[in-house]
């Protein structure tokens, strides 16, 4: 049975895409067949990282034009000698496609939700073990649809007042309302806990799976490689591996 993890945040710039890529890498390194889906149709970014032009964009599937397997690009990981496989569904970065998806009406959103549910079932049929949804930040149709079809929500937060105040709304107003299990990843944390506003001091009653330390080299590395595959000993990779292991027990994947 496949599991779907949505990576979401209430604010932008919290490291969702980096976490999505590296979590995907961590599951590949443990031999899993992973599908990473760019659900940020208003600000797609995975195409820039992989620098590929797929045969079909995920947008075509959402339009009902093609099947989900036609949107998948198999990422060549041969050189890294990994046991698992990585497939990516890219969102169309062209401004015309972004404009089109930004102005779709509510009937269309109902169809999208149905198609996402069917995509999950089809991906399971294709033998995918883990589906990772890289969502757009905040509360809008694309991200809430992604949360609605997920089995678990990882919410990335920067440890500052603005992020912490807005996180409560998405946890209570979206995740809990949709009956979703969720956990927090504190990202870009200063080394000393005295200098940041930790979520461990709040009453959210949501587990904090990991507090990832802020390091200058991460922002450079995440743009050019999947750190968990290329540098498994890097502190960022170790944080992501811990997240994966904790997720496994939440998702009964042990």
């Amino acid at each position: 049975m496949s599991r779907t993890i949505a990576i979401h945040s209430s604010k932008g710039g919290t490291g969702k895409t980096s976490l999505a890529l590296n979590l995907a890498g961590s599951y590949v390194s443990s031999g899993k067949k992973v599908c990473l889906m760019d659900m940020d149709s208003k600000g797609p970014s995975l195409h820039s990282f992989f620098n590929v032009t797929p045969n079909n964009y995920f947008n075509e599937y959402l339009r009902g034009a093609i099947s989900i397997h036609e949107t998948l690009t198999n990422i060549d990981l041969d050189r890294s000698g990994q046991k698992g496989e990585l497939y990516v569904a890219f969102s169309d970065p062209e401004i015309g496609a972004i404009r089109e998806f930004s102005t779709m009406d509510r009937k269309w959103q109902t169809k999208i939700l149905k198609r996402l549910i069917n995509a999950k079932k089809d991906l399971e049929g294709l033998g995918i073990d883990i589906i990772i949804l890289d969502t757009s930040p905040g509360v809008e149709f694309g991200s809430v649809n992604a949360v609605a079809v997920s089995d678990f929500v990882l919410v990335t937060v920067k440890p500052n007042k603005i992020c912490i105040q807005s996180i409560e709304q998405v946890i209570n107003g979206i995740y809990r309302m949709l009956g979703k299990e969720c956990a927090i990843i504190e990202n870009m944390c200063p080394e000393s806990k005295d200098h940041y506003c930790s979520l461990s001091n709040t009453n959210l009653e949501v587990p904090i799976l990991e507090s990832i330390l802020c390091r200058c080299d991460i922002s450079t590395l995440v743009c050019k490689e999947i750190i968990t595959l290329q540098r498994p000993e890097h502190p960022y990779s170790k944080s992501v591996f811990r997240i994966r292991d904790k997720l496994d027990s939440h998702l009964n994947l042990d």
Binding site: K107, T110, F141
Partner: peptide, 9 residues
């Protein structure tokens, strides 16, 4: 009457 995800909430 549309039952989209926001209405669901």
């Amino acid at each position: 009457h549309t039952l989209d995800v926001m209405t669901l909430l």
